[in-house]
């Protein structure tokens, strides 16, 4: 386990500290690539109208189902809507999914894992049973079952994913905290009489947070896969909301004549997923997180 120690625990590990500082000057290539890809999608998500060449919902009856061309690089759909513009417009929803489907699990799971890992006891035993139980439900199946109860839609999808998703963050944080607790610097902080809140949030959390941050990146990639899948099935974002999965479902009936309606939004999903994965890999490299 190569969990690097914080600055105030230096002393014997000054050698390692030096290598860490050296490493910070070199940005890992995957991280750079990930930052570029994700920033591109963020830009599309924030200002789609500035990047998209056409209005994503404007009909154009002079260009129905036209194949990719200079005027429409990704082609048009059965209403003559520009697929490139629609794909760009949809990134707003899909990046929202990446964030909204993971933010509550991230915050709640990390806090719960922090306390359970630190205090242990009956809560820890109970949590162990909960993890065993949660993993027996196929994730997609339990999410679909919850969406079935709440009704299809983006908000209900966030709720369904959050109800289950926090457990994985809590499990990860708990494991980290258990390891960190055995380090001398935590014992030192206790001996110094620091408050529990200070030890938890100033000493343990910053170190436990690094693998969680890496996992968050992967989880955002997974959230986009899940969100677009539910959108495709009609359980997530509802048409006419432009979302990559919904766009693909829109085009599936035209697939053999007009493959471009489905293929290009799919590219966006794949590229965005790779972007977040690279970001995760690069961060793991940079923060020295073993996976």
């Amino acid at each position: 386990m190569s969990a690097a120690l914080p600055e105030d625990a230096a002393g014997e590990i000054s050698g390692r500290k030096r290598t860490r500082r050296l490493r910070l000057t070199r940005v890992p290539a995957p991280l750079l690539a990930g930052v570029v890809v994700v920033s591109f999608f963020l830009l599309c998500a924030i200002a789609p109208e500035a990047i998209a060449p056409y209005d994503p919902i404007a009909f154009d009856y002079t260009a129905l189902l036209s194949p990719p061309s200079l005027a429409h690089p990704f082609g048009t759909d059965q209403f003559g809507r520009d697929i490139l513009s629609r794909t760009i417009a949809a990134s707003t929803i899909d990046l929202q999914i990446a964030i909204f489907a993971t933010i509550a699990p991230l915050v709640i799971g990390t806090l719960v894992g922090l306390f359970i890992g630190y205090y242990g006891g009956w809560a820890d035993i109970l949590f162990g049973r909960l993890v065993d139980l949660v993993v027996t439900f196929p994730f997609l199946v339990i999410v679909i079952a919850i969406v079935a109860v709440l009704g299809p839609g983006l908000f209900n999808m966030y709720v369904a994913v959050s109800v289950i998703g926090w457990v994985f963050y809590a499990r990860l944080t708990r494991g980290e905290v258990m390891v960190l607790q055995q380090y001398d610097y935590v014992a030192a902080a206790k001996v110094l009489g620091y408050s529990q809140a200070r030890i938890l949030f100033r000493h343990i959390l910053p170190n436990a947070a690094r693998p969680v941050l890496v996992y968050w990146m992967t989880d955002m990639a997974l959230a986009i896969l899940l969100g677009s899948s539910l959108g495709y099935l009609g359980l997530g974002a509802q048409p006419p909301t432009a979302e990559w999965g919904v766009l693909i479902a829109d085009g599936k009936n035209f697939f053999s004549q007009a493959w471009w309606i489905t293929v290009f939004p799919g590219f966006a999903i794949v590229l965005c997923g790779i972007g977040f994965s690279l970001l995760g890999d690069g961060l793991a490299d940079l923060l020295d997180v073993k996976r």
């Binding site: 999965g245 693909i248 697939f255 053999s256 999903i269 997923g273 790779i274």
Partner: peptide
């Protein structure tokens, strides 16, 4: 395999369906 990991199942399915079954 990284590409495979980032591709949603429904998309891979639709592409295979179109190319190998429909075309």
């Amino acid at each position: 395999f990284q590409v495979g990991l980032s591709s949603p199942i429904f998309y891979v399915g639709l592409v295979l369906l179109t190319v190998l079954a429909a075309w």
